[in-house]
Design a protein around this nucleic acid. Structure first.
Lengths: 158, 158
DNA sequence: TAAGATAGTCAACGTGGTTGACGAAATAGT
DNA sequence: ACTATTTCGTCAACCACGTTGACTATCTTA
């Protein structure tokens, strides 16, 4: 195991952030699979979240996620294929195809949120609530506004 | 921009960890490109690090990175093509092809470490050194031993 | 009404993964 | 010493997720 060189302290920080993220995401999907959503991949929760309760279009989804409309369309294809999203024609504009979260998609989203809440509670049990809050505050202060930018192949993979 | 629902506090944590990681990695590669390494992709630094000063083989590299030997071999191909790694025959075992970091690879690795150190120093300037240390300690306590496991398509993409 | 902008899709491609199959070379067992 | 097994590297096919460019159909605007 190639650990970070202690003489180069900077290396640990990105690795720890990645490891923390991965731990959370891995735990989420282990639990999600157990709760009946084994097809949901790490990316999908973010996409469902970005589609939102009101639905959206492929172009707008791409903008929200910071990816091309083509990439957004392909991801929607996959989520439609597994039943988490649906496409419906927009009666007011024949070019547009509205993307909507299905009941199954909403169930996955709700469970994801609940599981994340439980995982955060676990962190609070181990570290203490104030340290989890401090961690979030510090990251909020340092992390740029990359929140929902997924313009990178496979950030969430699995 | 779809921000996390405040009623679901758990959602913010993974997003913040990802955003923090991405910020660091993006800053690293912006600076690396400026210093003469525009071909270095996010994944590559981790791979160079995993190859190490003594060199390794594709199979062992795959084990270190938690990916298949085939995937490791393909990544090595790319790094060989851009001059960061080289392959040499192992005189003691004709099946093996030793993978070694080239001088250019070593330069990239050294610069990455320096840049990460500077970025960590920036975090310390903003948050205070003790909060950066606390953040690392907390993450060390929570993150499982996923350190160098990259068994996910494109975690570092770009 | 003609011209331009916008929505969605198709195709080709790049990167980073996977599994299965295979030949060549090393090692172990008798 | 010879056979059987394991190991190393590679090839091929495939998948997930991204890109750009080109194109049609439709809506909007001048």
């Amino acid at each position: 195991m190639a650990t970070a060189d202690p003489a180069r302290p900077g290396f640990a920080l990105p690795l720890l952030l990645l490891a923390g993220f991965r731990t959370l995401i891995d735990d989420l999907h282990t639990e999600l699979a157990r709760e009946g959503h084994p097809e949901l991949r790490p990316l999908h929760g973010f996409v469902l979240q970005a589609v939102g309760a009101d639905g959206t279009t492929a172009t707008e989804l791409g903008q929200r996620l910071g990816i091309s409309k083509q990439a957004a369309g392909k991801t929607v294809d996959r989520l439609v294929a597994v039943g988490y999203l649906e496409r419906v024609d927009d009666p007011s504009d024949a070019r547009r195809r509205l993307i909507r979260v299905t009941p199954r998609g909403a169930d996955g989203l709700r469970r994801s949120a609940e599981i994340f809440d439980r995982l955060r509670a676990q962190w609070a049990d181990t570290l203490g609530p104030e340290r989890v809050t401090a961690l979030e505050d510090d990251l909020r202060a340092m992390a740029s506004a990359n929140w929902f930018r997924l313009d990178v192949p496979g950030w969430f993979g699995g």
